[in-house]
């Protein structure tokens, strides 16, 4: 199944992309996807906490993904 990953702030800079499409096994979860993203970031997201949203809805627990889902990884930002 195909999953679209939308990248924000540090995730975008770590991966160098606004969004990427990943091919994943049926039954894959948000936690599994986060591991893949962190591996792709090659250490640049170490120590960065990430929240995950599936199809524009925050997920507080591990969620099973389905084909065509849009997943966003959102780090906290400071600014000001």
């Amino acid at each position: 199944m195909k999953i679209k990953v939308k990248c924000f702030s540090q995730v975008k800079y770590a991966l160098g992309e606004n969004e990427i499409i990943l091919e994943m096994e049926t039954g894959s979860t948000t936690l599994g996807l986060e591991k893949i993203i962190r591996e792709k970031a090659d250490g640049k997201l170490d120590g960065v906490s990430l929240r995950v949203a599936v199809n524009q809805q925050y997920q507080s627990e591990e969620t099973i993904l389905t084909d065509g889902d849009e997943v966003a990884f959102i780090p906290p930002v400071q600014g000001g």
């Binding site: 540090q10 120590g47 906490s49 929240r51 507080s60 780090p75 400071q78 600014g79 000001g80």
Partner: peptide, 23 residues
């Protein structure tokens, strides 16, 4: 709830840089 404790990461504008239009 938005970012449960303890949030880590997230540089300030002084650290990460910012154009004035964004704020």
């Amino acid at each position: 709830e938005l970012f449960p404790e303890p949030p880590s990461g997230g540089d300030t504008c002084e650290d990460a840089g910012v154009l004035g239009m964004l704020p």
